[in-house]
């Protein structure tokens, strides 16, 4: 965990409510795909926790959906402006359990962390597939970026305007996988949990106070005891989840 100032180098709209922000700064505290950063915004008391889409030494990429005043404020920021970030928060995904053919499932704003995860799995010689679920064709983002990594990408849309009509779970039976990695809205996580035929890791979202384990604001119950989504999570193992 680290606190640092980052400079915005890009802030581009990808879809009607979804933006990509690229930031320059010290990324050394980020150790695993699936971790998040917590962003201080002028005039807002609490920081905004946003998952890491990708990072390299000195560069951080986040994709965020405008859902309220804080993220709307972020969408209006421009290159050269600075942000105060806490980085390296949360446990992130454990790549050792992937098997040879892990399936990555990202729903809407849950898709971004799948990107760095796919890159890291590919670097380990794994053969990941990805399912990206959206409501409509217009809401899609990063389909081309995932495809450019050289892995099979299946898109589902609820209204059928692109890819497979339906939910991410409708695309799961056609894929032969050894493990599941997923992030998305609660109902989607539950549906993936019920449909999956292997073990897996599920990334959860909760309203947070601090994002680094101090306030107990985001605690959930698991089969192995209480866990803070911000600290022992956001990624939980399939076997420990209590719905």
């Amino acid at each position: 965990m680290k606190q640092g100032f980052f400079t915005i180098t890009d802030n581009t709209r990808l879809a009607p409510n979804t933006y990509r922000m690229v930031l320059a700064g010290d990324t050394s505290a980020i150790t695993a795909p699936g971790q998040f950063v917590n962003i201080a915004l002028t005039g807002k008391f609490l920081r905004r926790p946003i998952s890491v889409c990708d990072w390299e030494e000195g560069t951080l990429t986040i994709l965020y959906k405008v859902v309220g005043k804080g993220t709307a404020q972020m969408s209006e920021m421009v290159s050269g402006q600075t942000l105060d970030l806490l980085t390296g928060l949360g446990n992130g995904y454990d790549l050792d359990k992937a098997g040879d053919r892990p399936l990555l499932i990202g729903g809407g704003a849950g898709a971004p962390p799948m990107y760095a995860l796919a890159k890291h799995l590919l670097a380990r010689g794994k053969h990941p597939s990805v399912i990206l679920g959206f409501n409509t064709a217009a809401e899609r983002f990063y389909q081309a970026e995932f495809a450019a990594l050289g892995l099979p990408v299946t898109v589902t849309t609820v209204d059928g305007s692109a890819g497979t009509k339906g939910f991410v779970t409708d695309a799961m039976p056609a894929i032969d996988y050894t493990y599941i990695y997923t992030c998305g809205p609660g109902p989607m996580l539950k549906a993936v949990y019920d449909s999956s035929v292997t073990s897996g890791q599920f990334s959860f979202e909760e309203r947070m106070g601090c994002g680094f384990g101090a306030c107990m604001g985001c605690t959930c119950q698991t089969k192995y005891g209480n866990k803070r989504i911000c600290r022992e999570g956001p990624v939980l193992e399939k076997e420990e989840i209590l719905w």
């Binding site: 008391f45 909760e206 106070g209």
Partner: peptide, 23 residues
């Protein structure tokens, strides 16, 4: 004590609400 169910945190102007419930 586990405390209260989530959500336990809400933002306000110049502050926050918590209902952690003495976890």
């Amino acid at each position: 004590r586990f405390g209260n169910p989530a959500p336990r945190i809400a933002e306000t102007e110049g502050g926050m609400l918590n209902a952690v419930g003495l976890q």
